Structure formats: C-alpha cells, structure tokens
Simulated assay, not measured.
Amino acid sequence: MDTADDGTSTARSLASWLERLTFADLTEAEATARILATIEEWAAWQRWRVYRRAPSVFPLPPPLRGSSVLDVACARPGGAAPIAIEVDRRDRQRTVDKLLAEAAAGRVAIWVRWGTGPFPPPPLPVHLVVREASRRAGRWHTVSERPAPEHTGAAPVVAEAEELPWEP
C-alpha cells in the first residue's frame, strides 16, 4: 500500500487488478459499470473506504454551480493520500483538468481509460491505467494479450451415427 509515494504503485496495483477483468457482448454503459465495479472490488480488497460519485474539488462548468463528481474515490488509513479515479472510454480534456485539480489537492489521481485506444498519457501527476477492449457489432469485449491456444493439427474425430436396435 502507498503511504507516501507518488501513486505509481497504486496505479500499477489497479492495472494488475483490471487485467483480470473480462467481459463480452456489453454495451458501453454496461462495460463502464463492470469496470467501475471491478475498481470498487480492488479498493475494498485493500480495506479502503470506497465512494461512488464522490464530490470533486473541480467546479462544474458554467452555468452550472457546485462541484463536479468523481467516478470513484477511496479513503485510505494511516495518513495515505486519498485516491481520485475517473473512468472514460474517450479522451476528455475535462477529465484531465479534473484529475489535475484532484492531484493539486493532495490526492492520487488515476485515469482509467478503456476501449481501442490510442491512449495518450495524461500530464503528470495523473496516472494512466488502461483496459483494452474492442467493439464488434456495437458490443464491447475485453482484449487479451495472451495468444490464442495452439491447435495440434490433428484431424478431428468424426463418429459415424448408427441406429440402435429398438426393443419394446
């Protein structure tokens, strides 16, 4: 657990956790919800308090008033910096600005990007975590870096169907 680092090991830990996430045939909203649930599991596994839609230090754009919200925020014990996490499929400057404001307020800022990429790195001190996914027929599927299993090349076994005797 990070207590005084710059958040790099926290971002690596989250990236490792998200590598195990798989999904298939989901809408964009369903895929985002699955990613958010997995982030919550990661934080809960570390025994951190998890807040969905937590208030941000970043203001809402005019004419709205008040503060924006974070997708996930985590409070950590022992004086460790809180964590501010945003999840996006698209490259959004507003997300970068929000996370930079969170980092300036003393939080570890993590941007979880998912989709097909490219995923240009945000400015430091915002940490980038990527979960690749592809879209087929309008539905999202995770992408694995593991190669497809090799086939033996042996011919498939074909069985001949035969009628069995019937006894009443």
Rank of each mutant, 00 (worst) to 15 (best):
A4Q: 11
A11M: 08
H127P: 12
A73Q: 08
P63M: 00
E132P: 14
D25S: 06
S16H: 07
V69N: 03
G78V: 06
P121V: 05
P147V: 02
D5S: 12
M1C: 09
V157K: 09
P120A: 08
S16P: 02
G117Y: 11
L164A: 03
I83Y: 06
A43V: 03
Q93W: 02
W166T: 03
T10G: 06
E102R: 00
S16K: 10
A43T: 08
R65L: 01
E41Y: 13
A148P: 04
T116K: 15
W166P: 01
G115I: 07
W111L: 15
R136M: 15
R52A: 14
I35R: 05
S13T: 12
R139P: 12
R107D: 07
E41P: 03
T27I: 03
A109G: 05
F119G: 09
R135D: 14
E102Q: 02
P165F: 02
L36D: 11
S56E: 00
P118G: 10
G79V: 08
R107A: 13
I85W: 04
E19D: 12
T8F: 11
W140G: 11
V157Y: 08
S16Y: 09
P61Q: 00
G153V: 05
E163Q: 11
L36Y: 04
S68T: 01
P125V: 08
P59N: 01
E160T: 10
M1E: 14
G78R: 10
L100F: 01
L14S: 08
A133D: 10
R136D: 13
L70Y: 02
T32K: 15
T3N: 11
I110G: 10
T95A: 05
A29D: 15
A43E: 09
E28K: 15
G138L: 12
A29M: 07
W166E: 06
P156N: 07
S144C: 05
R20K: 07
A11W: 07
F119P: 10
E28M: 07
A54T: 01
D71M: 05
P63Q: 00
L99Y: 02
G138Q: 14
R139K: 13
A44E: 13
A101L: 04
P125T: 11
P77G: 15
F119V: 12
D88G: 05
G153D: 06
R92I: 04
A44N: 09
P59I: 01
H151N: 04
T22V: 04
P62H: 01
A15D: 06
A159S: 13
R53D: 02
W111Y: 10
A44R: 13
R135T: 15
P156A: 11
P55V: 01
A31I: 06
M1S: 15
I39P: 09
R131C: 08
H127S: 12
A155M: 04
V126T: 08
P165Q: 06
F23Q: 05
P168V: 03
H127R: 15
F119D: 09
V112N: 13
A4Y: 06
A80I: 12
E145D: 11
L36E: 14
V96I: 10
G117C: 12
R12P: 03
R90A: 14
P62I: 00
S68G: 01
P125N: 09
D5K: 03
V126L: 06
R89I: 09
L18N: 04
G138R: 13
A15F: 09
R65I: 00
T32M: 09
A103R: 00
A105Y: 02
L99T: 00
D71R: 05
T32L: 13
